[in-house]
């Protein structure tokens, strides 16, 4: 319990540091948003007027304090460019990014689990070596490369799936999923290797355990031993990784949303970066950090489900 409190306090500090550093960074932008708003041939006075209008001439610390106060009451500020409410802008787009990440992670897991189990079954066996080589190739392909390759093959070559675009779920499940397949696959084809390697390493160790030897002595089949007896105790590191990967996935969605024209938070952020709309950047970064922290908190809960020792608190030893 004390550890949990320590973790919570630490997370709060981390969030504070993240938002403050971001705030400092976006506020020392050389060409600030006032230039962007004033237009190409405006005079220095006009720019200065806009600055004062937005309150950008006041000390950074003061503005940071105001912003933090706003966040606590649900006011994340308003975009300088299109006056959109930042919180609404993010929450409108987040479900799209979330769907993309979720799909990617589902695909990654459905590749990683069978592959990891198959390679752990006989380390250095044929299956292990083939899967290992595939993983090596896969990890050497950044997601934007995979995306282009997938577009080239499945969209331009076979014409099975659209190259870009997004359909809301209201258009029907398949209509919604169809344009998501290639983007999710592009992300998953990078992420699965890390999951697979982690699962493989832990499973090789678990397969040495006495309880696996006992399961064999009980006459259980290899399949049952791998999936019922070994998989759950082998997946702790992989679950931890799922939480840590959220940061990487969020980064990945930025590029993938850009390539496939998916209206998610990543695209919002990129657009804000191009237009130097710093209050939106600030909001997105804060949101990402929050998402990351939440994901890792969920991972802790997943442990309890996986490991009865955590769940029941352990009556004896």
């Amino acid at each position: 319990m004390r550890y949990l409190l320590y973790r919570l306090r630490r997370l709060a500090i981390v969030l504070g540091v993240v938002t403050f550093i971001t705030f400092l960074l976006v506020n020392v932008l050389p060409g600030d948003v006032a230039y962007e708003m004033a237009g190409m041939d405006s005079s220095e006075e006009e720019v200065q007027a806009i600055r004062e209008d937005l309150g950008l001439d006041r000390p950074v610390l003061l503005r940071y304090a105001e912003w933090v106060g706003g966040v606590f009451v649900g006011d994340w500020g308003t975009s300088y460019i299109n006056q959109e409410n930042v919180w609404e802008a993010i929450t409108d787009r987040f479900p799209v990014s979330f769907e993309l990440m979720l799909l990617a992670q589902i695909i990654a897991l459905s590749l990683a689990i069978p592959a990891g189990v198959a390679s752990a079954f006989r380390p250095n066996g044929r299956a292990d070596r083939i899967i290992g080589s595939l993983a090596f190739a896969s990890v050497s392909m950044p997601s934007f490369m995979t995306a282009i390759l997938l577009i080239f093959i499945f969209a331009l070559g076979f014409g099975w799936l659209p190259a870009t675009g997004y359909e809301p779920i209201s258009e029907g499940l398949w209509a919604n999923l169809r344009p998501m397949i290639l983007p999710a696959l592009s992300l998953a084809l990078v992420e699965w290797t890390v999951l697979m390697r982690t699962l493989r390493a832990e499973m090789i160790a678990v397969l040495q355990e006495n309880y696996i030897a006992l399961a064999r002595a009980k006459g259980m089949s290899n399949m049952r031993i791998l999936l019922v007896h070994a998989l759950r105790p082998s997946s702790f590191s992989m679950i931890t990784l799922l939480g840590l990967q959220v940061a990487r996935l969020l980064g990945g969605t930025i590029i993938i949303e850009q390539i496939f024209g998916i209206p998610g938070v990543g695209r919002l952020l990129i657009h804000a970066v191009y237009t130097r709309d710093f209050i939106v950047i600030q909001g997105c970064v804060t949101f990402f950090a929050l998402a990351f922290v939440t994901a890792n908190f969920l991972v802790d809960i997943a442990y309890a489900w996986l490991d009865p020792r955590v769940r029941t608190g352990g009556a004896h030893g």
């Binding site: 309880y211 006992l214 002595a217 009980k218 020792r309």
Partner: peptide, 19 residues
């Protein structure tokens, strides 16, 4: 294994599946 021959291991802490 089971119906004709069975084994009991040394360490009951590690020979039962924890999950």
């Amino acid at each position: 294994r089971g119906p004709e021959v069975a084994i009991i291991f040394q360490d009951p802490m590690t020979s039962l599946n924890p999950v």
